[in-house]
């Protein structure tokens, strides 16, 4: 029965598009594995959160971002930057804290920013970016743009007060068509070491939005096609209505929470193994083979190419210079010279 549904969904999907997104997902996976290695080699400071297992969510939604749309997310943000078109070299250099990084080596892993491509960050405080995303959506309408804001957050962020205040406002402003925001709850089952069952007495994340007068749905976040379908439909509805909407993408963090989460005492090996069966990249490979869109050789070629790109990115990051100490106070405020009393 699962097959039937997938065939139905994919009727509208063009296999070339799937291959293109497969390429992006593989690139992200490679990037994350390389960044994990580099972190353990001591080349990346601060902290690191990888996206492994969740690639279909960002790929499906971000590929439908329009020029005028904005994207905001939390600290698990490498995929979002890369899929919006950031150069893997600059992204990796940012993780390395190098001057050639996306934000001059001052943000690091958790604070990727790419205003030209609509990525409004990259935030380190759980839930802290949610009010910003709602404000961005309001600003888009207020300024007469047709854009919407894709607001990514994790299941843990939903338990924070900042989320609640923002969702309430999104519900209120949405009634007047003034809040074209799509809350994309990436439910990866864990808030660090706390499972969703232990972080809320009601783990129906989509359902929670009812309290704010916001409509919602759930989507299988491991299925690229399901994500594409939901995104295509919802984004246009929200663009039209200006009303907030929420999508709970059911996914799984195959990787540990962060670079220092070695033992994963909060979940069993069996559970991780089970979810690995649903690895979105694995599922997509099978799908592409079934569709005859690729053969094994082509898949290998894509992987090799991604590997080369990432190796080059790591080399670039490694060889780049660190920001000079004189830049310590620059890029802190907009119009910072005034703050610092400089000419």
């Amino acid at each position: 029965m699962a097959d039937e549904k997938q065939t139905e969904v994919s009727a509208a999907v063009d296999p070339e598009r799937l291959v293109r997104l497969y390429r992006e997902m593989v690139l992200v996976r490679e990037f994350e594995e390389a960044s994990q290695r580099s972190f353990r080699q001591g080349k990346i400071g601060g902290y690191l959160h990888v996206y492994t297992g969740q690639e279909a969510v960002a790929a499906g939604f971000l590929s439908q971002k329009k020029e005028e749309d904005k994207v905001i997310t939390a600290y698990r943000d490498h995929a979002h930057a890369l899929m919006l078109g950031a150069d893997p070299k600059e992204a990796m250099a940012e993780l390395f804290g190098k001057r050639t990084g996306m934000v001059k080596g001052k943000g690091g892993s958790m604070h990727l920013f790419d205003v030209d491509r609509g990525l409004m960050g990259g935030y380190g405080i759980v839930g802290g970016h949610v009010p910003l995303g709602v404000g961005i959506a309001y600003a888009l309408r207020y300024r007469g743009s047709d854009g919407i804001c894709q607001l990514y957050l994790g299941d843990g962020a939903v338990q924070t007060g900042a989320f609640h205040e923002a969702a309430n406002l999104a519900g209120l402003w949405g009634r007047d068509g003034m809040c074209p925001v799509v809350f994309i709850v990436e439910n990866n089952q864990y808030a660090m070491g706390t499972s969703v069952e232990r972080s809320t007495a009601n783990p129906d994340f989509a359902g929670k939005f009812e309290a704010y007068g916001i409509e919602s749905e759930k989507v299988d976040g491991m299925s690229l096609e399901a994500v594409l379908e939901a995104g295509g439909r919802v984004f246009e509805e929200v663009r039209e209505s200006g009303k907030a909407y929420a999508i709970e993408a059911i996914t799984y963090r195959i990787a540990p929470h962060g670079a220092a989460d070695f033992f994963e005492k909060y979940r069993t090996k069996e559970e991780v193994r089970e979810w690995r069966q649903k690895d979105p990249i694995g599922l997509l490979e099978q799908r592409l083979l079934d569709l005859d869109a690729v053969d094994e050789e082509k898949l290998q070629e894509i992987k090799d190419e991604a590997k080369r790109t990432i190796e080059e990115a790591v080399r670039f990051a490694d060889e780049s210079e660190e920001p000079p100490p004189e830049e310590l106070y620059t890029d802190v405020y907009a119009g910072e010279d005034e703050y610092l009393g400089k000419e």
């Binding site: 007060g161 900042a162 989320f163 609640h164 205040e165 972080s199 809320t200 007495a201």
Partner: peptide, 17 residues
């Protein structure tokens, strides 16, 4: 009830009955 504190407290009360 529009305050974040309320939300966090309600969630905590729910989790721990």
């Amino acid at each position: 009830t529009s305050e974040g504190d309320w939300h966090e407290a309600m969630n905590f009360a729910g989790i721990h009955d």
